[in-house]
Structure formats: C-alpha cells, structure tokens
Design a protein around this nucleic acid. Sequence first.
DNA 1: TCAAAAGTGTTGACACTACACCCATGT
DNA 2: ACATGGGTGTAGTGTCAACACTTTTGA
Lengths: 242, 242
Amino acid sequence: MQGTGQDYDKYAYEPFAVTVDLAVLTIHAGALHVLLVERGQEPYAGRWALPGGFLLPRESAEDAARRELAEETGLADVSGLHLEQLRTYSDPGRDPRMRVVSVAFAALLPDPPEPHGGGDAAQARWLPCATAGPLAFDHDRILADAHDRVGAKLEYTCLATAFCPPEFTLGELQQVYETVWGTALDRPNFRRKVLAAPGFVEPVPGAARLTGGRGKPAALYRAGGAAALHPPLFRPTTEGRP
Amino acid sequence: MQGTGQDYDKYAYEPFAVTVDLAVLTIHAGALHVLLVERGQEPYAGRWALPGGFLLPRESAEDAARRELAEETGLADVSGLHLEQLRTYSDPGRDPRMRVVSVAFAALLPDPPEPHGGGDAAQARWLPCATAGPLAFDHDRILADAHDRVGAKLEYTCLATAFCPPEFTLGELQQVYETVWGTALDRPNFRRKVLAAPGFVEPVPGAARLTGGRGKPAALYRAGGAAALHPPLFRPTTEGRP
DNA sequence: TCAAAAGTGTTGACACTACACCCATGT
DNA sequence: ACATGGGTGTAGTGTCAACACTTTTGA
C-alpha cells in the first residue's frame, strides 16, 4: 500500500471493519472441545459461533484476541497462554451486513474455565469439536483450520504442553497427541521420543501423581524451554498424509 | 465480533485501512531476490518497501494480492503461481499516518520479469534479500517472515517447483533449496529423495539440457501433482534449529 | 585426454516400530 | 491375587548421510 501515492483521507475508502475470531481449544474427557457462543440475533440467530470482536483503535489484533479471550472465559492471567495467529479471512460477503475482515487466532488452554455466557450472547459453552456442527458465518472453516494447524504443530513444536497444566505426566501429554490427532500411540516409544527431545519437558524432582486412581504413580514433568521439537514427533504414517 | 450485540453503523468505529503487502521472491544468480519499490514520499521517502496496496471494496485479500502483483510485475497470467498468506500485521503505529492493518503474502516466481517502476513509486527493482536492508515500515520483519516460511515449507511441501520454470533439471531444483536454506546439499542423496517422493517431480521423456556449457546434459522434469512432500526433505541438522 | 556436470552403488550409523517384560499401587 | 497404569529392554527393520565410483558431454 505504502508505495502508492494515495492521499490519506481516512474516509476516502469504504470503511472495513476489522475483527478477531478465536478458536479456543481445550481437552476435556478425552475429546477436543472448542469454546462457542450462541448468537442472539440475525444473521444466524440461534447458531453457535466462535467468540470474537472488533479491534479497538489503539490495539493490535493480538491484544484484541487476548482481551476478548479474557472477557469470554474470565481468565485473569491471559499472558502466559498460547495464542497463535491462524490467517485472515477477507472474503467479501463472509458477513452479510458489511465488509468484515477477520484475523483468526487459535488459543490453547489446559483447564477449561466455566465460561460466563457474557454480554448479550445468549450463552457460551464448551462443545466437542467433532459435533460442533454447522457454525455461523465461515466459522466451520476457521475451526477446521485451527484443528489442522494445531495438529501439524504438535509434530514439530513443543505446543502440546500448552494443553497441559504446569505439571503433568507423560500419560497426560500423550493423551493430548492422541486426542488432537485421533490416533493411538505406543506408550514406550512416545516416552522415549519425548525424553529424547532436548528442552521439551524437564522432570519435577521427586514428584509423582496417581492418575486413574490406581496403578503406579507417574512422574511429573514441566514444560522445558524449547519451542521447536528435535527430532520431530510424527503421526503414525497413514501412507498418504495430505 | 458477530457474537456481540454491537449496532452495525459502518461509521461507528474508527475506520481501519486494510491493505496487502507482497514479498515477491525469485532466485537469480544463485541468490534470493525480492521485488522492492522505492518510496517517493514521506514517510520513509527514498527507502525501499514491499509492493502492496489497498483492498478494493468487493475484493478478498487474495484477489487484491494477485491484482497488485500483476500491476507491479506486469505478469499477464498470475493465476497459476504460488501465493501464500503469511500473516496479518496490525500493530497500531506501524504506519504513522493512520491505522493500517496489512495482510502479508509471499509470492514465488521462476523467471523474474523486469518490473516497470510503476505508478508514482520512484522505481521498482529486484534486490538480493540479504542486502535489502532497512526497509520502510515493518517490511524488514515481513520479508524475514516470508523467508522463514518459504524455507520451512520447502521441507514438507512441493513448493520448490514454484521457483522453477515449467521444465527444470534436478540440479536447478537443488539450487532452489541451497539458495533459500543457505546450505550445501549432497547431490546424490538429494536426487534420491526427490525421486522417492511420489508426485513431487515427473520426468519429461527424452528431454535433456546442458546447464554449465559442458558436462553431461541433465534430464528434465516437470512438477508432479502432489502438494505435500512425503517423506519430507529436511535441512542438514545443524543441531538446534530454532 | 582432461575437466565438469550428471547419475549410480555401497556401507555403516542410527532411528524407529513392535512387542515382551518388570514395577508400583489400589481394591 | 489381580487389574491397572507407569516404566524398561531389545531385536528386526528401515532410513539416511557420506563418499567412492561410473557416464556423458565440451574443450
């Protein structure tokens, strides 16, 4: 843009609304869940939609996403969680009322706080991704893109720990992979690969926790300092990953 | 956004300008080059910048990027080339004049057409990425992000063929990898991996071309139908890729 | 005949899958 | 005792980097 010689009258162009949309994901009862709000008005009244909102005048899209996330989920400390820009959806006509360009984010939470069905949305709720069914606007696509991106990033980044509480067992970490990928993994091999990747997890000395009520207590780990995962942790090769 | 009960007066909010910025990359003389325009006015007058421009009212960001690319490079058939959305830059203050949210794209070209220093920009030119240094606005960061993204995508997609003409030798394909990654690769192993990946390249029967003026003529290949690369083609493990 | 570039073969190191097995705990 | 989940060992297989080698061309 800046290369052109336009005059910069703020109102010379059709105004674009700029918003953020959030695919807030968490793992609950062995299934991937997403935070949705029920729309109270047309269009798509009564349909579920991703939470989101307008950018404020002096706020970046990332800041807006964190603010909206705090408002929708009641999260006090939103600073440490993982927030990832997915892409921007700019199709004219994606919102029938006016031109809306939306920057979509994926956010990952370990423990789903009970959402307060905030503001004027009819209600807010965690729903399983698989059965979230037709959402408002192009939000089905955004949710699918979020799922794809998270699944891919589990392979070569340490992202999985963002789904886990500060201290977690390797079994819990494995459940993250199995839930997002929808495949079972071999436990001994998973353990070895995780421990072999430098900076992925670090042990909490002496700590242990019973997981299923019985069985041997599992050692606890913290997220390590690394961001990338070397070597990567590939999904079972289904011969033709697309 | 759509979940809230805002009224939808188009002018109720501070207007945001929405633009696209393009990092158009090509390989020339063994170095990665980027298409830049010289700014004719303040701010950043005389500095190089990425080409780009405003979204038209009924145009998606992808459409706008293709239009701008055609305008800046004079490319007639812009339909087949690779255009990839990078991310959206929305920092308030990234443009001192007004609030500009920019959707950045990376575009890959095999043969750099001579740019016609179009419109009111002082001139347009291909410059080596390495020495393009300091660009206007936040374009240094956008360019770095484009380079990173392209480098990463070479590993697990068939993107490299987008830098090559319709028919190319394996040596030329290898130069793409070496130029973008900045590392040397073992030729025999490279050849085997490329040929082992189904749908990456397909041979052009009977065709051959001399590359350096002497030496054995190399067989020619076309891009195959696949989008993803299996198995992937990793960069030399420098023990701690970040 | 030599240099340069394309292309082939081989080998040893390593990584990974698959599975058998042992350990600690609650009922 | 036994079921349940955590954790260890190991053999077979495959993959890959490294490098020696052959082939085809122009000078």
